[in-house]
Design a protein around this nucleic acid. Structure first.
Lengths: 136, 136
DNA sequence: CAGTATTCCTACCTGAATACTAGGATAATA
DNA sequence: TATTATCCTAGTATTCAGGTAGGAATACTG
């Protein structure tokens, strides 16, 4: 129903990253889940995805866990969102010319592309640090 | 999966309004559906919703149909979106203080509220005319 | 008044996605 | 070798988008 909606996946991911940013050394999925009240097995999958995208580095075995691969100030929210949900794309047509067979008939395309640009600008100009810093 | 997604409901509604804007007099749901290639019965529901929200005026019976209740230049896209999907709200918390029981624990709230503001500004500063005018 | 064209109302259906849960295999450390 | 992790695969419950179907209410027209 909503035009845009932040899934629990993104909310959980962001909170987990925020937890890691405010901590020295690695943290396990179970530790983060406990601290943040997030279902553990579900969080595992999210963290795995963030690792595969290169935002986190993981170590297995005892004393292992996850840690940020970049300082929080260099991690844009856009990169987090795209890691968890792929490229933002309001409509099929908004993917670019030739992506749909209407092309000319699809006048609103320009409009939705503009919206995507506005959202991308917001998300790429804020970092993880901005999200967790109450002063911002 | 997407952070924001324009539903067919909004796309169809917009195209129907665009059709009405470029036409003298009323048009029936069937006419618009035929011209725009939209499922007729589905469109009926959408137009009914736009009517209930006051964006359209309808007349039943022969020679009836729908017409805009405002000039296209005075119809913001935000009003269209809200008529079809209700208020934009990225997360529960973003509805305002007190809307969730975390409040202080919900640091990212401010961030998502900012995103909502950015989107609202974009949508409320454009009208139906802007959407259908290739020059804009 | 009969017929026709239209909106309006209610109910249902289906496929896909979100938000999980379950159980273990694999790897690293102590 | 016991423990603590990540990693992998599969299944499930619920919700929602995107329709379909059928007819009732209403208004014009001959």
């Amino acid at each position: 129903m909503p035009l845009f909606q932040v899934s629990t996946r993104i909310q959980y991911g962001l909170r987990a990253l925020a937890y890691l940013a405010s901590k020295e050394g690695p943290a396990s999925a179970a530790e983060i889940a406990g601290a943040e009240g997030i279902p553990g097995k579900y969080l595992e999958g999210i963290l795995g995805q963030l690792t595969a995208s290169g935002l986190l580095r993981s170590e297995r075995g005892k004393n292992g866990g996850y840690r940020l691969s970049l300082p929080a100030a260099e991690l844009t929210v856009l990169s987090i969102v795209e890691a968890l949900e792929g490229e933002i794309r309001p409509t099929e047509c908004a993917a670019g010319p030739g992506a749909c067979d209407h092309d000319l008939a699809c006048l609103p395309r320009r409009f939705w592309l503009g919206l995507k640009t506005a959202v991308d600008e917001y998300l790429s100009s804020r970092t993880l640090l901005d999200v967790i810093d109450p002063a911002s």
